[in-house]
Each structure stands twice: as C-alpha cells, then as structure tokens.
Amino acid sequence: MDRFVFLTVDGLSRGAVYAAFALALVLIWRAARVVNFAQGAMAVAAAYVAYTVSTATGSYWLGFVVAIVAGLLLGALVDRVVMRHVDHASPLNPVIVALGLVLLIQAVLGMVYGSEFRPAEAPFSRSALTVGGVAVLSPYDLFVFATIGVVVSGLAWMFARTPVGLRMRAAAFAPEVSRLLGVNVGGMLTLGWALASGVGALAAMLVLPTELGLHPHAMDLVFVSAFTAAVVGGLDSPPGAVVGGLVVGLLLSYVSGYAGSDLTPLAVLVLLLAVLLVRPGGLFAPVAARRV
C-alpha cells in the first residue's frame, strides 16, 4: 500500500510535467494545425541555456527564468524564421520541417556542449517527506505541482478572460474572419508558438532533474510520452491534454514500479497505439475527431 501511494504521487508529479508538455503541443496544434515534433529539442536547448547561466552565476533561479525566456524567444524564432514559410498544403510538410529542426538543434547542442550527460540540478530536495510513517511526496514534487498548477491555470485564465486570449482563439478558429476584425493573426500565431515553447522549456526544467540529466536527446522519450498524453486527451482539447498527461504519468509510474522501468517505453507505445486504434479522437473528444 505504501508503495502504491508512493507510485501514485510520483506518477502524478511526472504526469503534471507531461500535462504541461502536452498542453504546449495542443496550443500549437490548435493555433497552427502543426504537431511540433521539435518541441522536445527546443525545450532541451532552453534547458542548456539555463545550465550555462546557472553554472556561470551559481543561481538556479536565474537559470530557471532564463530557460523560460529562451523558450519563448526560440518559439517565436522558429515560427517567424521557419514555420511561417512552410507550405501547409500537405500536413506532412510541417512535420518534416520540424524533424529537420530536431536534427539541427540536437546537432548544434552536441557541438557546443558535447554528448555527455550534464547534471540537472533540482532546487528542492527530492527525498520524500513521510506522513504517518508513509513516504508521500518530496518538496520537489510540491514545487512541480505548484509550478504546473500556476502555469496551467494562468494559461486557462489568459485564454478565457483576456482580450489577447480572445484574439488568439479567434485567430486559431477563423484566421480570415479575424483579420477582417482587425486581429493581427500572424502575431497571434507567433505568440502561440512562443507561449507553447516557453511552457515546453518550463516542463523540461522540471523533468530533467528526475531523469538522467541534461543531454541533447534527453527529451526524446518525454516528447513521445507527452504526445501520447495529448492524443489520449485529444489534440484539440487543452483540458484533455492535462488529464492525458496525468493518466500517462500514472501509467508509467505503475509500470515502472511493478513491472520494471525498462518496460516504460513499451508501455507508452502500447498505450498510444491502443488509444489511436480505439478512439482516434482521444478519450475526451467532444464530437467526431477532425480527420487529418
């Protein structure tokens, strides 16, 4: 039972990160109809920038802030310099370009930082506090929950309640009409990319200390898990992405705890295939999924 509680908390903490990362994927998908396969590589790049800043200044928090800013900028840059110029007539084109970005970013990181693992620092202790003799959750888990909670509710508030959120939704749903109403659709798209990439960078900062550390490929499997989370929730649904993230986090934690951590990649693949074959629109699809 103790083990179950521990695995559940660990799964939720991991799942919160997947949720944020999946949410970033959903943001871009809704705005641009592109699944950003480069999101993992972009987030790692931001984490490397944070690593450089933190080792130079000795401040974790400065690096943390810099990572998010770097993520925002990188997202805007990718949209303006690359994605804006891709012919979206076939859905394969942006996917292929995103994969080119993956190769490019990972290679540049490898050239600058080398391919060895760098330590990823956690700002709080990762050893679990015990409540009534049961190890429950660590200060770091609390930090993860709080950060993701703030970001997710902040995004939800922004999209639902602020003028810029309204503009972004309008631009995503009906770009042509939105332009007629004076919305700078291109700018909203860039903002969407920046926000998503910033959230991705944040997720990378939170997940890397729990993994092997910093490496150009460190987010590959996280990306696959987050993509699975986004598909579980339905690519069009931000709340679905959050629930999907938690589901995937829990599943992986149980598989890892009861069957062995080697099996987690296989579990992700099986879950992804199962969801896509049974409910291609995701478990929370409100209507028939948009065929792509």
């Binding site: 598909v231 992700v268 792509v292």
Partner: peptide
Amino acid sequence: GPYLAGVTLAVAVV
C-alpha cells in the same frame, strides 16, 4: 498526418 508521424516516432524511440 501527425498521428501517423507520432506513432512511427514512438516506434523509432521505443
């Protein structure tokens, strides 16, 4: 589209 790409990406990683 992206669903197929995602699944085959998962195959490639896993």
